[in-house]
Design a protein around this nucleic acid. Structure first.
Ligand SMILES: [Zn+2]
Ligand SMILES: [Zn+2]
Ligand SMILES: [Zn+2]
Ligand SMILES: [Zn+2]
Lengths: 161, 161
DNA sequence: ACTAATTTTGTTATGGTATAACAAGTCTAA
DNA sequence: TTAGACTTGTTATACCATAACAAAATTAGT
């Protein structure tokens, strides 16, 4: 995860939360305490967080501990475009580009479990074209790639050079 | 699902089972009764089948009705490359190209729930390249597209013309 | 401020997906 | 034939997600 490596992750969190505030304000959505805290907790790392892991963290802090609490927060955050669900992991990840309309394409490290979101217009266009060849009208895309990230390959320097 | 439309689906099943027999023989794997029947049941349609749906069908036919029965069969069939898991649906689909090394790329119809598997070397190459740009070594790909198939758009004729 | 409508949260219950752990049976090859 | 490997049976449990309805809080109109 070279882009995310050796960075001040507090910046990630601060930016994400500031973006969330702005977006919710613009769209007349309410970023309530539990929603805001859920988003912060998801952003604690670049690893996707399971719904029940999140629920446990929220419960520790005095929030209600029944599943609907966390799924409601997750639904809200997903609808607002502030997080993505990683289908292959049944887990949730903060979105770093919430202010731009986009699909979530993910690179998932099998070793450290960090996930990098990437955007790739070329692939998106290719997929639309490919689907059209089959008479298929594309609506949504789940693109989740796994493998080894740069750090886990020990190649961070070479690659970034 | 224009390619799959108006076809004799028994051919799909027969071909899939014959391929399974051959592959298992070649690889010294045992296609036992429950595994074989599970594969047939998954191939009953081009719609992915949930593990518990499959379990119910097997149970009706006198197979053991505990979850490990079905998950073991599914694990076997997936390892043998005879089926794929559709992650975004938590469901399993017969693979029509089990004899070729490939990734499963899927077009999933939101309306009729049929799934078409497609292969797309260009996209595969693009993804490897894109991953490499991030220092990432690709191991597996989950590509699941949803939308409307040709039949459900009522465009089968135009597209196939 | 008062009230009604809307949204959010609390609560209980249930359904759907998947695996751990260990025992028993079956197949295969020496 | 017997040991080892593989497969299946069985019980229990963990994890993921939603339905349904009640209560509380927020918002908007008066
Ligand atoms: Zn970060
Ligand atoms: Zn890694
Ligand atoms: Zn068919
Ligand atoms: Zn369709």
């Amino acid at each position: 995860m070279s882009e995310e490596h050796a960075h001040n992750h507090n910046d990630c969190i601060d930016t994400a939360l500031a973006t969330a505030e702005t977006l919710c304000l613009e769209q007349g959505q309410r970023l309530t305490k539990v929603r805001r805290r859920a988003l912060e907790l998801i952003w604690e790392s670049h690893r996707p967080l399971g719904a029940y892991q999140l629920l446990a963290k929220l419960a520790e802090e005095g929030f209600n501990s029944a599943p609907p609490t966390v799924y409601r927060a997750l639904d809200f955050l997903m609808n607002a475009g502030l997080i993505h669900k990683v289908e292959s992991m049944n887990a949730y990840l903060g979105c770093a580009h919430a202010d731009k309309e986009h699909k979530g394409y993910f690179l998932i490290c099998d070793e450290c479990h960090n996930v990098m979101e990437f955007d790739y217009q070329d692939i998106h266009a290719s997929l639309i074209a490919k689907a059209a060849q089959h008479g298929f009208e594309l609506r949504s895309e789940t693109i989740e790639l796994t493998g080894l990230c740069a750090d886990c390959r020990g190649l961070a320097n070479e690659v970034r050079a």
